[in-house]
Design a protein around this nucleic acid. Structure first.
Lengths: 137, 137
DNA sequence: CTTTACGCGAACGTAAACGTAAACGTGGCG
DNA sequence: CGCCACGTTTACGTTTACGTTCGCGTAAAG
């Protein structure tokens, strides 16, 4: 029963499969900034969107610090020119990385796929040998 | 002057941009197994291929342990049926992960690209405001 | 034959990203 | 009112993936 559209730390952690500790940790590193109702944290829809981005960034091997810099791009809040330019530069570098990674990943998928095929073949061979040489049992 | 086609640990580390310590560390985790000439390690072409795979796996966020399991698929050596099946299962799981990641990465690239566009727009706006409001200087 | 460079293994240190435990506050409800 | 589940801060522990000495051997260079 969302009072407005917000979640407690526990609802949030269960919704995203992370621990409350992790959420507090992200907050301590300025990756999240849930509002406080008294002492308690309340996570808005925007916070959920940010967390999505955080977790995705993590899956791509970005550090929390890199993610934090990119996230700065997402708040059109009170920002000055220099800060925005810095964030843009970081984001462009990440973008180049990601495109590189995308291409490499495609190739790696093909290679691993082929390797699995070879593995299956050698497995069939092993099983055939085992069937024709029952003395190993 | 390669005696055959092998590299010392230093040549290897410089060729791949990693430290000798990292190479020894990978070896300690059974990710590499260079031959020994007396006490010294000598890295063959096969070792170089493995290292390539290791570093690529790392870029995709796989742990060294995950990478190690996949690498087992690449040595058609003395392996039994159960071991091969386990390695195949691991590899198939990784493949699913990688395909998922591939799709997500494509989407993330698109989103970040768009976000950069918006960032550039708001930057232009900031600069225009700064130009029309010289009192801030 | 000493210096210099590289390599070795063992041990300890470190940064990132949390996990875990302690000690305490707090709101709701029976 | 008392209790309990949940939340808080603070502090220390843990895992991963190496970095950093250290003392020592050895091999090439001067």
């Amino acid at each position: 029963m969302p009072d407005d559209d917000v979640m407690t730390i526990r609802q949030m952690s269960e919704a995203f499969g992370v621990t409350p500790r992790a959420l507090r940790f992200y907050e301590s590193g300025d990756l999240l900034a849930p509002v406080r109702h008294g002492q308690k944290r309340l996570y808005s829809k925007a916070d959920r969107a940010r967390l999505k981005l955080i977790l995705r960034g993590k899956r791509f091997g970005f550090s929390l610090e890199q993610i934090r810099e990119i996230l700065e791009l997402y708040n059109p809040a009170e920002r000055n020119i220099t800060q925005t330019e810095t964030a843009l530069a970081t984001a462009r570098e990440r973008l180049v990385d990601m495109r590189q990674q995308y291409a490499e990943l495609g190739q790696a998928i093909a290679e691993l796929n082929q390797q699995i095929g070879e593995g299956e073949a050698s497995l069939r061979k092993l099983k055939a040998e085992a069937a024709s040489k029952p003395e190993d049992r």
